[in-house]
Design a binder for these strands. Sequence first.
DNA 1: AACGGCGCCAACCGCCACCGC
DNA 2: CGCGGTGGCGGTTGGCGCCGT
Length: 333
Amino acid sequence: MGRAPCCDKANVKKGPWSPEEDSKLKEFIEKNGTGGNWIALPHKAGLKRCGKSCRLRWLNYLRPNIKHGEFSDDEDRIICGLFASIGSRWSIIAAQLPGRTDNDIKNYWNTKLKKKLLGIASSQRKPHQQQQQQQEQLQQQLLFQSLSSSSQGKYYTSPVPPLPVLKSLPPISQDAFGTVPTTTSSTLLQGPSYQYQMMKESGHMIVFGSEQSCSSSDGSSTQISYGKEMDYNYNIGRAGGAEQMGFESYLFPAGIEETHRWLLGGGGGGQVERDYGLSRLWEEAPLEYNYEEIKQLLGSIHGYTNNNDHNLSLDDPSGSGGRGSFKSQGRVM
DNA sequence: AACGGCGCCAACCGCCACCGC
DNA sequence: CGCGGTGGCGGTTGGCGCCGT
């Protein structure tokens, strides 16, 4: 089986575009527009190219106001935040970055940003934290994969809510109190080493990650996994003198509220009511599971798949075949 | 200078959704 | 409602250039 090719492959030129072809295409579109039909366009424009190729060339290179060159820190931040929220929906991400194309962002992510962030993440990993239970690792990795990787097939089927620039929770040792933490790309972590993402004000978010070794005054410790949508508050303030304190609270869909507070002394060390086990432990090696296994594991993450309260839901990938099921996406010409 | 490895990125490929008939 | 054509998307590839040996 197979489908008819979009053009006569024998008679179309492939490979890099010549300046002549570029100017032909540009001139034609500027004069006539695309005519709503890319397949017919190359013939009309006198180009021996596939319509899709023309479209790509126009959208990614010739279109006016295309921005090339280095990505700024702000752009890094937006890409990281959106990737963590919606995964590799490059066209959606590109829509938030005027002048950038999905292809550009995809390339940038794959070649630079991902490595940059992974490097940071692995350098922050502490040896003693490499004792995590396998099940938790698996769940969290799968959670991340399912939310971030379209090929694993979890999709938002409702419009994604407005996404503010995401802020990351500052490490507890950092002087992040009294000022709103401004995130640089170096504090955003992703993928298997993903830790926390935190918006600076109240709102709704999805948190990937977990806390571990949460010590309390009676010496007990607990381990908490997150992989849930939740409402949250995040505040940082000062509690007199040089003392610094802050808190954050999470409201889970089930109505359970959890509040974390911390208190740091000014000069001589600090005290936290709960330890933030911010560094994550993940398997470096990719794990591969079939969909049934993934489903089972995700099913064990409470509250994960039932997010309708928040206008977000997750599709079964088996029905969509893996791509293009982002229902709210608009067509861009 | 030659060669191999690697990174980058433009372009291609294949799939799916949408739309008109 | 079904079908075919087209647009749009994300993953992948191939070629080029840079750099180290």
